[in-house]
Amino acid sequence: MVFAMFLAAIGAQTALQRLPRRAVLLLGAAGTAASMLALVAAVHTSSAALLAASALLAGAGQGLGQLGGLSLLNSALPPRRLAEANAAFNVGGYVPAGLLPVLTGYLSDHAGLTAATTAFGAVLLTLAATGATVVATGRRRVHGPA
């Protein structure tokens, strides 16, 4: 499933790379939100098919979020600032991506797998919805040289 998840990320990036950044980001948020709904449903129903669907949707959501984020960096910053912005972007993404599953594991020890997975899904669904809201309601800003 992990391999399929990464394939879905690559496939989504390849198929949708020509869409406007806003659309890419909104589709990424939608994929992530749908993935969390499928994950919670999979755990509550013990469905392997829903778990597989969740992995594919998570891959697409992550891939599109990364494509949109990196595209924004590339369009908004001068080339001399891209390396540091990319590093900050990755830290901002990978620290929560590492912490949330670990915290979910600890929670599952105390509350059980179903409750912990439901909490994990709710947190990520909320983050995806918040991101989509920011993208949907945001205005294009024009920045001068940094």
Rank of each mutant, 00 (worst) to 15 (best):
M1P: 15
F3Y: 13
M5F: 05
L7K: 08
A8P: 14
G11V: 14
G11L: 12
G11P: 14
A12F: 00
A12E: 03
Q13P: 01
Q13H: 03
Q13S: 13
T14H: 03
T14N: 04
T14P: 00
T14E: 01
A15K: 10
L16V: 04
L16P: 05
Q17C: 06
Q17S: 09
R18L: 01
R18Q: 06
L19Y: 04
P20W: 05
P20M: 08
P20N: 14
R21I: 15
R21A: 13
R22V: 15
A23V: 08
V24I: 15
L25W: 10
G28S: 07
G28A: 09
A29C: 15
A29Q: 03
G31W: 14
A33K: 06
A33N: 13
A33H: 02
A34F: 09
L37K: 10
A38C: 07
A42E: 02
H44L: 03
T45H: 01
T45D: 11
S46K: 03
S46T: 12
A49Y: 13
A49E: 15
L51M: 10
L51C: 09
A52D: 05
A53M: 04
A53Q: 02
S54T: 02
L56W: 11
L57R: 00
G59F: 10
G59W: 11
A60Q: 07
G61K: 06
G63D: 11
G65Q: 11
G65A: 11
Q66S: 13
L67Y: 08
G69V: 10
L70W: 02
S71I: 05
L73N: 13
S75F: 00
S75M: 07
S75T: 08
P78K: 13
R80D: 08
L82Y: 04
E84D: 07
A85I: 00
N86Y: 09
N86W: 07
A87Q: 03
A88V: 08
F89C: 12
V91S: 05
Y94A: 01
Y94D: 02
A97H: 12
A97R: 15
A97W: 12
L99T: 14
L100M: 04
V102Y: 09
T104W: 04
L107Y: 03
L107N: 06
L107R: 10
L107V: 14
S108K: 07
S108Y: 02
S108T: 03
S108L: 03
S108I: 02
H110Y: 14
A111C: 01
A111E: 07
A111P: 12
A111K: 01
L113Q: 06
T114F: 01
T114P: 03
A116D: 06
T117C: 05
T118I: 01
T118S: 11
A119E: 00
F120M: 04
G121R: 08
V123Y: 02
L124Y: 09
T126E: 01
L127P: 00
L127W: 01
A128T: 01
A128W: 08
A129H: 02
T133W: 15
V135S: 12
A136F: 05
T137V: 13
T137E: 02
G138V: 05
G138F: 04
R139H: 14
V142S: 04
V142D: 12
H143V: 11
P145L: 11
